[in-house]
């Protein structure tokens, strides 16, 4: 069984085909979205506020489910049977770290994922330490989450999914609300995570340019452009039309 999972995960892709999603209040937030991210590739999902970025990302580990379209992660179709497995593979970092850090203490938050994957205690503890070390927050294990700065919370939010050792990382506006230094830290941190497939939603064009070779532009719930980040960022017209701006 383990062997099978590992074989499947040897190509940890994100594949979304013809996904549409309507919120219960009738708003069509995703309109026939298709997108593929290759193993170890880092793709930026750019688009103005309300373009559907968060909605799309929430589909990638089944927090939101849509009856239309198909989603495959690491080759496995996302359905009830595979949900647990997929949630262990896909680390989703929410936009607001106050939503992600729900435990009283940092340590408990980072341990939450591995514990709920059913890992043995020693393994959980080892993973918590590794994840905190990766984000440079090893000294924060015993801290209380709500007393931390936004930058610290963001890094710990990333640690809470790294401890699950996901093959796929999905980040929702990771640089929003960060000051320049915290933002630099974050970009360096994400750049060093080379073993993961990443889909990063953002309207921070510089972050997109520095981290991702490819970008997908979303507007009004539709994919309106897609290509090398460099091309997209140099297309002033395109950016203008979709409420974005050139980084430099």
């Amino acid at each position: 069984m383990v062997g099978l999972n590992e074989r499947v995960m040897s190509h940890h892709t994100i594949e979304v085909e013809n996904l549409s999603f309507r919120y219960p209040d009738g708003r069509l937030a995703l309109d026939d979205v298709s997108l593929t991210v290759a193993p170890d590739e880092k793709v930026a999902l750019v688009g103005p506020n309300g373009s559907g970025k968060s909605t799309l990302l929430l589909h990638l580990n089944g927090v939101l489910r849509s009856p239309t379209g198909t989603i495959r992660l690491g080759g496995l179709p996302l359905n009830d049977r595979n949900l647990g497995q997929i949630r262990a593979w896909v680390g989703l970092v929410f936009q607001n770290p106050d939503d992600q850090l729900f435990s009283p203490r940092v340590y408990q938050d980072v341990a939450f994922g591995p514990l709920h994957m059913g890992l043995p205690e020693a393994e959980v503890r080892a993973r918590v330490e590794r994840a905190l070390a990766v984000v440079g927050m090893g000294d924060y294990a015993e801290r209380v989450s709500f007393h931390l700065s936004v930058g610290e919370k963001k890094r710990i939010a990333i640690a809470t999914v790294l401890s699950m050792e996901p093959k796929i990382l999905v980040l929702d506006e990771p640089s929003a609300g960060l000051d320049p230094r915290a933002r630099r830290h974050l970009i360096a941190l994400l750049r060093d995570l080379k073993q993961q497939t990443m889909l990063i939603s953002t309207h921070d064009m510089r972050l997109a340019a520095e981290l991702c070779a490819r970008a997908v532009v979303l507007d009004g719930g539709r994919v309106v452009a897609e290509g090398p980040t460099e091309h997209i960022l140099n297309d002033a017209d395109l950016l203008e039309r979709h409420g974005l701006e050139k980084p430099f």
Binding site: F94, D99, L115, M164
Partner: peptide, 18 residues
């Protein structure tokens, strides 16, 4: 949103602790 964040990390209705 917090519940979604818990689901995303494998919560299935039973709280586990170290």
């Amino acid at each position: 949103r917090v519940y979604a964040a818990m689901l995303a990390r494998g919560y299935t209705g039973r709280m586990r602790a170290l």
